[in-house]
């Protein structure tokens, strides 16, 4: 028996919007720790890891570990039927082949339940080692989204170069080239507006912009984004989900033959 009651149902709606274009089908894993997911895109270039900790739910009952295969497009269709202020409860029976999403309006005058068919998904689970990254950049998530969107109108790939001086995003295309440099800036009114660059050593990596743009669909989940890089390793783009956990995107770099 599984029953997870999330007061801020809009968080789950935003999570689905953030990942449904990257991943078609995924297993949601439920354990005493929380509600989580790890899934790769079809080309195995990008991976999303989601964690919503048990403590973040108003009620969290998970009698035994459960893995539920869901089509994310269908799940998104169902969650779009929940109001932004609704409380969302996820319910499933052990060994059942459906999951139920229950939506309660804030003043309890409307209660809906949507039952969705589960599916069997063979998913590869990758072991991601704990890594000390050589460059960690924290910046406003909207600024990061803006840069990725702007550069993708010029080129297909972005070179992200981080040094003590700042972080440079560069692209080249048929019509020309572009560079955006962000310097560390901590003299801001609100901490979420700061750009903070922690560097152990300079890092420069090249990535496909279409994946970066896809990751920025998580922007509504957090005011800030953290980009962690080491030379010759996948980048991690992390959006913290307040009080609950995180959504992390891993993207393999393009590397010279």
């Amino acid at each position: 028996m599984l029953e997870l009651r999330l007061l801020q149902g809009s968080l789950l709606k935003k999570v689905l919007e953030a990942i449904k274009d990257l991943v078609t089908d995924a297993n949601f894993d439920c354990s005493a720790t929380g509600f989580s997911l790890q899934a790769m895109d079809s080309s195995h270039v990008a991976l999303v890891a989601l964690l919503l900790r048990a403590e973040g739910f108003e009620h969290y009952r998970c009698d035994r570990n459960l893995s539920m295969g869901m089509n994310l497009n269908n799940m998104s269709k169902m969650l779009k039927c929940a109001g932004n202020d609704d409380i969302i409860t996820i319910k499933a029976d052990d060994g059942g082949d459906t999951v139920t999403f229950m939506f309660e309006s804030p003043n309890q005058d409307k209660i809906s339940d949507f039952e969705m068919k589960l599916m069997d998904i063979d998913s590869e689970h990758l072991g991601i080692p704990e890594t000390e990254y050589e460059a960690i950049i924290r910046m406003p998530s909207q600024e990061f989204a803006r840069i990725c969107r702007d550069l993708s109108t010029i080129g297909d790939t972005v070179v992200i170069s981080a040094s003590k001086e700042g972080v440079k995003f560069s692209t080249k295309g048929d019509i020309g080239s572009a560079n955006v440099v962000c310097r560390q800036n901590t003299s801001v009114d609100k901490p979420e507006d700061a750009t903070v660059i922690e560097i152990q050593q300079p890092v420069s990596l090249t990535f496909a912009l279409r994946y970066m743009n896809s990751f920025t669909k998580a922007t509504p989940l957090s005011n800030t984004v953290t980009v962690s890089m080491s030379n010759e390793l996948p980048v991690v783009v992390e959006y913290k989900i307040a009080e609950m956990g995180y959504i992390r995107f891993y993207l393999a770099p393009k590397i010279e033959e």
Binding site: H44, L47, L126, P234, A252, I255, E256
Partner: peptide, 14 residues
Amino acid sequence: DLNQRTLADFFCTN
């Protein structure tokens, strides 16, 4: 030329 790597080049399968 740059080659797009996959995540399996960096992470191991459980």
